[in-house]
Amino acid sequence: MNSPNSRKNRDSLIADLTEGLTPVRAMRFRDGALVVGAATLLTGLGVVLVKGFWFGMFEGEAAPFFWVTNGLLLILGLAAATAVITMASPKVGNRYDAPRWASAMLAILPLTALVAVLSDTHGAQGHDHGMTGSLAWMCIRNSLIASGLVAASIVLWLRRGAPVSTNLGGWMTGLAAGAIGTAAYGLSCPLDSVGHLGIAHVAPVAIMAALGRLTVPSLIRW
C-alpha cells in the first residue's frame, strides 16, 4: 500500500530520529504535584506576608461557613489540579470527572448566599454580609491576583507535556488556580458571613475558569 518512496521517507525519518535520541526524564504525576504544590505554598506565604494572617480562625471567631467554604475550595482545587497535572501525560481512557462534581458542590455556596441574603436571616442578627462596596471587590481582586502563580505553574507544566484535551485543560487550569488562589487568600480574610463567602469567594473561581478556557488552550496547543 505504501509506495517505495514513502517507505524510504519513513525509514529516513526513523534513522534521523534515532540518531537524535537523547535521554529524557519521564514526566511523572508527582513532579507535577510538586510544581503546583510549591506554587500553592508560595502563594499562601505571599498572602500572609502581604495581607497578614487572620488568627481569629483558630481562636473560635470563624463561623462554620468559613471552614465549609475554604474546605470546598481546597477540595475543588485539589481535584482540578490532579486532573490537569494528569493531562500532561495523555492516555485514551483518562477521565476527569472529579472536578465537575467538586464544582457542583461549590456551586451550592452562592445559592446558599442568595437565599441567606434574600431572607436576610443573618442581616437581622446584625452580621455584615460583606457583599457591598469595596469589600467584596477587594476579595475578588485579591483572590484573582493570588491565583496567578498557580495558574502559571500549571500552564508551564502543560506546555512541557502533551495535553490533548486543550479546551478542558483551559477550564481545569482556571478552576484549579482560582480555587487554590481563593483558598490561599482566605487565610487573610476575616469576613465569614454566608453572603460574603458564598459570592466574593466563589466568583474568583468562576472568573478564573472562564479566563482559563479563553486563554490557556492557545498556550498549551502543540
Binding site: 519513513r10 525519518l13 526513523i14 530520529l17 537524535g20 535520541l21 529524557v24 526524564r25 519521564a26 514526566m27 511523572r28 504525576f29 500532561a88 501525560s89 495523555p90 512541557r160 507535556g161 502533551a162 502543540w222
Partner: peptide, 12 residues
C-alpha cells in the same frame, strides 16, 4: 512519529 519523538518524556 515526530510527535512521539518530541513528546517522549510525557510517556509514564
Amino acid at each position: 512519529m515526530m510527535a512521539l519523538h518530541n513528546k517522549r518524556s510525557t510517556y509514564d
